[in-house]
Nucleic acid binder design. Structure first.
Lengths: 249, 249
DNA sequence: CGGCCTTTTGAGGCTACTCAAAGCCGGTGG
DNA sequence: CCACCGGCTTTGAGTAGCCTCAAAAGGCCG
């Protein structure tokens, strides 16, 4: 499921220069290097973090896409967010002994490891890093709030449209290829769409069909196509967020 | 709606020694004092922050209870969280020019003001403050995730039970009085319950009736009573979170 | 007393759910 | 090379949970 992989020096961090991300200064790269404790590679479907367990590491996602979800005792699942390169993974692990959520790889992923024990040390010497982490946490909060609006206030079709546009935006903003600005290749199953939007699997399928019939969006296995983004945005009442360059650590 | 009020020195901060909160060291109190730019008092129903606007200040909630919500263009509202004394209000305002949500006072509230411009300065000199802020942000994230599970996976009765138990927990943990460990006095309208849980007003009302019929909980205007907390917890599949002392700034 | 906000109740309808089963596709092994 | 298997998608049928429209009742305040 997981395996260690050859570690890349921070100076060669694949995130430096990645579209949408604000590069770290050489000075900070040097500093962060001292905290990097190798990398993990996780294949498609593999678990990065597991709910109820405690994590030894915090991570930065170097490559790939992740899903974050909670599971109830009776098996119901709620996907709370997707994570893209540059995102900080497992922040809660720095404070709580038990994790609130699980994290799974949607695409083969590579993550950078930081020791949980040295977290305070990591942020205390360079306030810039602390500032950036708070920034990322604030972004994350904004995203969750937007997802909540979708969950609570939108109907099935609006929900799916919202999710499609959001994924497109997020992919574009983090340098995941989007062919012709329309086609996003991500292996998201209908069961996952259902678990994110609080819909049943069957109704999710029918809703996808309906949206395709109206040519609003085509969510085929492995690909999300938005022939007319603006129309989808309007339909979903999607609220555009300012796309600043995101920091990463 | 808002008015300035007599400022209290940080050394006399009403949050020091408040139940559930970890007091600041005299050293830090002194430091924070330099950033305090007065207070605001907001009456019941008054707006603390407004969506789409930019805020000049960040705040710490000294007294009272707040609701945080987003509004769609067509008027649909989604309440995303409630805030209790010690909570940091308006973190997003430190980074984005436009706020994602509005914040309204549920009880008469008093807030401490910090200048948005000096945010970096505030966290950079004392890493402890940065660390605490990241902690609070992580807590907030956990809460939102739990709310999302309620929104996406629970039915109407479970949702209401979840919300009641959660509010009780949060009130207890921040020193809001809960009579006999059962009765929490909070003026939450059925419309607000509906807006938090993604239910219609009518159905919310019927659900409350049904829960009262089963003696699971009594949510009368102005008061939430839980005669048997454990039964409500089980019914809602409420997940208990570790209650550590929360930091505040 | 009148007006406004909130709560309550009734009736009818649609959205989304459950149960069930078939089709599809890629992978595996005989 | 083909049969088999498991995971995912698709479709049908019937139903229940929740919604909308509508209106009355209760409570608070000027």
């Amino acid at each position: 499921m997981e395996r260690q992989s050859a570690t890349v020096a921070c100076a060669q961090c694949p995130l430096s220069g990645r579209k949408g991300l604000r590069p770290l200064t050489p000075n900070l790269l040097d500093f962060v290097q001292k905290f990097k404790e190798g990398e993990v590679q996780v294949e498609r479907g593999g678990l990065v973090l597991e709910q109820e367990k405690r994590s030894v590491h915090l991570h930065t996602l170097l490559e790939g896409v992740l899903v974050r979800f909670l599971t109830l005792d009776d098996g119901r699942r709620q996907i709370v967010n997707f994570m893209f390169p540059g995102d900080f993974v497992g922040l809660q692990g720095a404070f709580d002994d038990k994790l609130n959520h699980s994290v799974q790889a949607l695409l083969p992923a590579r993550l950078c490891n930081f020791g949980r024990r040295r977290f305070y040390e990591l942020i205390s010497e360079h306030p810039q890093l602390a500032y950036d982490l708070i920034w990322l946490a604030a972004c994350e909060e904004t995203e969750l709030e937007d997802h909540m609006v979708a969950l609570g206030q939108r109907n099935a079709r609006e929900k799916v449209a919202y999710m499609a546009v959001w994924l497109h935006d997020r992919a574009l903003a983090s340098g995941i290829p989007v062919l012709h600005d329309q086609h996003l290749d991500l292996p998201i199953t209908q069961a996952q769409i259902a678990d994110m939007l609080g819909l049943s699997l069957v109704h999710t399928n029918r809703t996808l069909k309906a949206l395709a019939r109206d040519s609003l969006l085509f969510w085929t296995p492995g690909r999300i196509s938005l022939p007319d983004r603006q129309r989808a945005v309007d339909f979903a009442q999607y609220e555009e967020r300012s796309q600043q360059l995101r920091p990463f650590i």
